[in-house]
Amino acid sequence: MSRESDVEAQQSHGSSACSQPHGSVTQSQGSSSQSQGISSSSTSTMPNSSQSSHSSSGTLSSLETVSTQELYSIPEDQEPEDQEPEEPTPAPWARLWALQDGFANLECVNDNYWFGRDKSCEYCFDEPLLKRTDKYRTYSKKHFRIFREVGPKNSYIAYIEDHSGNGTFVNTELVGKGKRRPLNNNSEIALSLSRNKVFVFFDLTVDDQSVYPKALRDEYIMSKTLGSGACGEVKLAFERKTCKKVAIKIISKRKFAIGSAREADPALNVETEIEILKKLNHPCIIKIKNFFDAEDYYIVLELMEGGELFDKVVGNKRLKEATCKLYFYQMLLAVQYLHENGIIHRDLKPENVLLSSQEEDCLIKITDFGHSKILGETSLMRTLCGTPTYLAPEVLVSVGTAGYNRAVDCWSLGVILFICLSGYPPFSEHRTQVSLKDQITSGKYNFIPEVWAEVSEKALDLVKKLLVVDPKARFTTEEALRHPWLQDEDMKRKFQDLLSEENESTALPQVL
């Protein structure tokens, strides 16, 4: 008996699950189920560990084997000379395990699969056993689809999209007709009724959600790893209520002995410091949205989908001078704002400069500016000194954290500008005749005249004003913003236009 009217009423009120309206889709043409990776026989039982391990490696599972009696060998002398080797079968990115008779397991190899009674669906509900069930008529011709799209860092995100009359449910929550939600590992998919569980979705590319604290899981769906560094790992996640993407940084307390840091400095109150950081608001710094204190720290951040500045300059790639100017102007505005709010970044580098898009002209935002507030000064500097390429001379020669101030950030900005303009770092371990530390503390950077011949004198002058060993003589952010190279009204107008595109209400910060 159909429950279409009941569920449609529920759909009209929406769902609290991570779902959002989605535009129309072009329906895929039908194809045989076997060619799409559906096993030839149905099963109602969950797999054992041996079955799972075989399939996850990209080899055929026991459900897909063919009797050897149906095959015969071709003698080598009868092999056609022009026969080309077969292409290897792509490894599946996800697996659906059937929970009921009449449904088959599915190895997801393609990027898009339609499910329903219509014969054009890649996964067609046409098993005779299924057709005899009382629920068969409640399934729509095109009930739902599972697909994946390219996300940040060229990774993939799996989604389920509801197109049914009676509802598609993920972990008992209604997706909603015309809406989608991301699928995470071990999600249970039910059709027409929330208790009519048909599939379990296994994402073969992500970790299980159960490793994360419950308070975090209640608000966010964790997904793929976006990156990792000395101070922690960053994962893509989704807000459950809105389906908006965020980035979540995970900082290990054990790695940084944060408990010991608190004992050594009783004034170090991470929760208080995070609340201060959350109040920071500038178009060129990453917004801190939320914070969870569990076995590790979880910092929920605004997501930038254009990648890191590092990706644009790695491998001796240089940027156009006009692009360097647009990016560097924004970096200076961001660091100036942090300094005005009493925050020294201490870890400025291309990896911590994020881009809003893949376009050459785009907004940038500074991230990882609050680590000293979370990890403690000593722990952070011990970590950073392991990779000193961007560290100021006074940091390398000081004991502990004494003896330096916000000028350290201006040195790091000078190193970043040098790399963007030239395509190579000013200080490098590859210069074996002088140690990296000695290069930095003496201010002897690697200047290649033929490379810098293409760079304007004004740009080079600003680099020199920032890479000054004496912090008292080094340019401040205010002085850098007043430098002739940055007195470019076309560049500032472009920045204002980019801000307006992102948010019509965002105004250009005042600069002296």
Score class of each variant (00 low, 15 high):
S2G: 12
S2R: 13
E4R: 05
E4W: 03
D6T: 15
E8Q: 14
E8W: 05
A9V: 09
Q10S: 10
Q11K: 14
Q11S: 06
Q11M: 04
S12P: 09
S12V: 11
H13C: 15
H13P: 14
G14D: 03
S15D: 08
A17P: 10
A17G: 06
P21A: 04
H22D: 12
H22T: 08
G23F: 02
S24I: 01
S24E: 11
S24N: 07
V25E: 10
V25G: 12
V25Y: 05
Q27K: 11
S28I: 15
Q29F: 09
G30D: 06
S31M: 09
S32A: 14
S32C: 12
S32L: 09
S33I: 07
Q34H: 06
Q34D: 11
Q34M: 11
S35I: 11
Q36L: 14
G37V: 14
I38C: 12
S40Q: 05
S41Y: 09
S41M: 07
S42G: 11
S44M: 10
S44V: 09
S44T: 12
S44Q: 05
T45W: 09
T45G: 10
T45K: 07
M46Q: 05
M46V: 03
P47R: 00
N48T: 12
N48Q: 09
S49K: 09
S49Q: 09
S49G: 12
S50T: 02
S50R: 13
Q51T: 09
Q51M: 07
S52G: 14
S52T: 11
S53P: 10
S55T: 12
S57Y: 03
S57R: 03
S57G: 13
T59G: 14
L60K: 04
L60W: 08
L63C: 08
E64N: 03
T65P: 04
T65K: 02
Q69G: 02
Q69A: 00
E70M: 05
L71W: 15
Y72N: 15
Y72I: 09
Y72H: 09
Y72V: 06
S73L: 15
I74L: 14
E76I: 06
D77N: 15
D77P: 09
Q78S: 05
E79C: 04
P80Q: 13
E81H: 15
Q83D: 03
Q83C: 07
Q83E: 15
E84I: 07
E86P: 03
E87K: 09
E87Y: 11
P88C: 00
P88A: 10
T89S: 09
P90V: 08
P90G: 05
A91E: 08
W93E: 04
W93D: 03
A94I: 07
A94R: 00
R95C: 04
R95D: 06
L96E: 01
W97F: 15
A98N: 13
L99T: 13
L99S: 12
Q100E: 09
Q100T: 11
D101H: 13
D101E: 10
G102Y: 08
G102E: 10
G102F: 15
F103E: 09
F103V: 03
F103A: 06
F103L: 10
F103R: 04
F103D: 01
A104Q: 07
N105S: 15
L106S: 14
E107T: 13
C108H: 01
C108S: 02
C108L: 05
V109A: 07
V109W: 11
V109K: 12
N110A: 04
N110P: 02
D111T: 08
Y113P: 01
Y113T: 14
W114L: 08
W114R: 12
F115G: 02
G116F: 00
R117D: 01
K119R: 10
K119W: 10
K119P: 12
K119S: 06
S120K: 04
S120Y: 10
S120Q: 15
C121V: 15
Y123K: 15
Y123L: 15
Y123I: 14
C124Y: 09
F125P: 01
F125I: 07
D126E: 08
E127L: 11
E127N: 07
E127H: 15
E127P: 13
L129R: 08
L129C: 03
L130N: 06
K131R: 15
R132P: 05
T133G: 06
D134H: 13
Y139G: 02
Y139K: 03
Y139N: 00
Y139E: 00
S140C: 01
S140W: 08
K141T: 03
K141V: 01
H143F: 01
H143S: 03
H143Y: 04
H143R: 02
F144V: 02
F144S: 02
R145L: 15
F147T: 14
R148T: 15
R148W: 15
V150A: 07
G151R: 06
P152S: 04
N154E: 02
N154D: 01
Y156F: 14
Y156Q: 01
I157Y: 04
A158R: 00
A158G: 11
Y159H: 04
I160A: 13
I160N: 02
S164Q: 06
G165S: 13
N166Q: 04
N166M: 00
G167C: 00
G167A: 04
T168N: 04
F169I: 15
F169N: 04
V170N: 02
N171A: 14
N171Q: 10
N171G: 08
N171L: 05
N171K: 12
E173Q: 08
E173F: 13
L174Q: 05
L174Y: 03
L174H: 08
L174C: 03
V175F: 06
G178F: 03
G178P: 14
G178C: 14
G178V: 13
G178Q: 15
K179M: 01
K179G: 00
K179Q: 01
R180G: 11
R180T: 03
R180V: 03
R181Q: 12
P182L: 03
L183P: 00
L183N: 00
L183R: 02
L183G: 02
N184W: 05
N184F: 09
N184Y: 07
N184G: 06
N185M: 15
N185L: 13
N185I: 11
N186H: 02
N186D: 06
N186F: 06
S187N: 01
S187T: 04
S187L: 03
S187P: 10
I189S: 08
A190E: 15
L191V: 13
S192L: 03
L193S: 03
R195L: 02
N196E: 02
N196W: 11
N196Q: 02
N196M: 15
N196A: 15
K197A: 10
K197F: 11
V198N: 00
F199R: 02
F199G: 01
F199D: 00
F201L: 11
F202A: 07
T205L: 06
T205G: 04
V206Q: 13
D207Y: 07
D207G: 12
D208K: 00
Q209V: 10
Q209N: 15
Q209C: 01
S210N: 00
S210H: 00
S210M: 04
V211A: 13
V211S: 05
V211W: 03
Y212S: 00
Y212Q: 00
Y212W: 14
K214Q: 02
A215V: 04
L216P: 00
L216D: 01
L216A: 10
R217E: 06
E219C: 04
E219S: 07
E219Y: 00
I221D: 04
S223T: 00
K224P: 14
T225I: 12
T225N: 08
T225Y: 12
G227W: 15
G227D: 08
S228W: 08
G229A: 15
G229S: 01
G229Q: 03
C231K: 03
C231V: 08
C231P: 01
C231F: 12
G232E: 01
E233S: 13
E233N: 11
V234K: 00
K235E: 11
K235N: 07
L236N: 06
L236C: 00
A237F: 04
F238N: 01
F238S: 03
E239R: 06
R240C: 10
R240V: 11
R240L: 04
R240K: 09
R240T: 06
K241N: 14
K241F: 10
K241M: 04
T242Q: 05
C243I: 15
C243S: 06
K244Y: 14
K245P: 04
K245S: 09
V246G: 07
V246F: 11
V246R: 10
A247K: 02
I248L: 15
I248D: 02
K249W: 04
I250R: 14
I251N: 11
I251E: 05
S252W: 10
K253P: 03
R254K: 13
F256D: 15
A257E: 03
G259I: 02
G259T: 03
S260Q: 01
R262V: 04
E263S: 06
A264T: 02
D265E: 06
P266R: 11
P266Q: 10
A267C: 11
A267W: 10
V270P: 08
E271Y: 10
E271I: 08
T272Q: 07
